[in-house]
């Protein structure tokens, strides 16, 4: 089961004199929930953009779902799901229309779309909201729907960029249950977050400081290593050494 889904070696991204991502290396295994932590400006987003095929690395190598990030961006895009920190479905389309759109984008045919969408709606207990405009749903529901749609094409990896920003604790809980469910079915989850309690839910966590990966292990072992009570403390110990501001 320990096959590698994301593999990164010495990956760097420079903008002029500024090194946003500084020679990072790590592996992510199938079915893992990989927490990608770091303060604002630590280079998380830049690293994630490179993994999603949105920007090219300045140097280093990497592969996602078996495709090279330098040359096979198009293939990568087909095999990953993405959910951004900002709500990114269309408010003026119904739940069903949003699903149909993204299914279409990822090349699902009509019967596949029908089957997948019905299945997702059932799992979300959303079947009655099928024809509701997404704009009129509460934020928590929208986030859950976003996640469901990000997995509509059964991607190998789902990238979640601060998926629970601004969501209430109960919905966050439900959201994480969905993430667990997806991980159990073999989808790899790559998630960035600001909530340190969420970091505890991850299989493994990496913490970026000033463009470098400063720590990478399971939450339990990280806490041991830094003699900390919680992930929050671990994070603060590491972030204290940061040179870069926000």
């Amino acid at each position: 089961m320990n096959d590698i889904v994301i593999s990164v070696r010495e990956l760097s991204k420079r903008f002029g004199n500024f090194t946003a991502v500084d020679r990072i290396s790590f592996d992510v295994y199938r079915g893992e929930i990989f927490g990608f932590l770091g303060a604002n400006g630590a280079g998380k987003t830049t690293a994630m953009r490179m993994l999603c095929g949105l920007s090219y690395p300045t140097s280093g190598k990497g592969s996602v779902a078996g495709y090279d990030i330098m040359h096979e961006g198009e293939q990568i895009k087909r095999h990953i799901g993405y959910m951004s920190q900002r709500f990114s479905l269309y408010n003026d389309l119904t739940v069903w229309e949003n699903m149909r759109l993204f299914a279409g984008i990822y090349g699902l045919n009509k019967s596949q779309t029908e089957q997948r969408a019905t299945e997702l709606l059932k799992r979300l207990n959303f079947s009655s909201e099928r024809n509701t405009l997404v704009g009129s749903l509460p934020l928590g529901w929208k986030q859950k729907l976003s996640f469901a749609i990000a997995t509509i094409h059964r991607p190998e990896v789902v990238f979640l960029d601060e998926p629970t920003g601004g969501v209430d604790p109960i919905t966050r809980r439900q959201f994480w249950e969905m993430i667990y469910e997806a991980a159990e079915s073999g989808t790899t989850i790559f998630v960035t977050t600001h909530y340190m309690d969420e970091a505890e839910y991850c299989t493994r966590v990496s913490i970026m400081v000033d463009g470098k990966v400063q720590a990478l292990d399971t939450p339990t072992r990280l806490k041991q290593q830094f003699a900390a009570e919680s992930m929050d403390e671990v994070f603060r110990i590491l972030a204290r050494g940061a040179q870069r501001g926000e």
Binding site: G53, K77, Y82, S88, L89, F102, I105, Y106, G107
Partner: peptide, 13 residues
């Protein structure tokens, strides 16, 4: 502005 463009750009379209 809304952020949907980002999701579209990550998609294979």
């Amino acid at each position: 502005e809304v952020g949907t463009m980002e999701v579209l750009l990550v998609s294979p379209v």
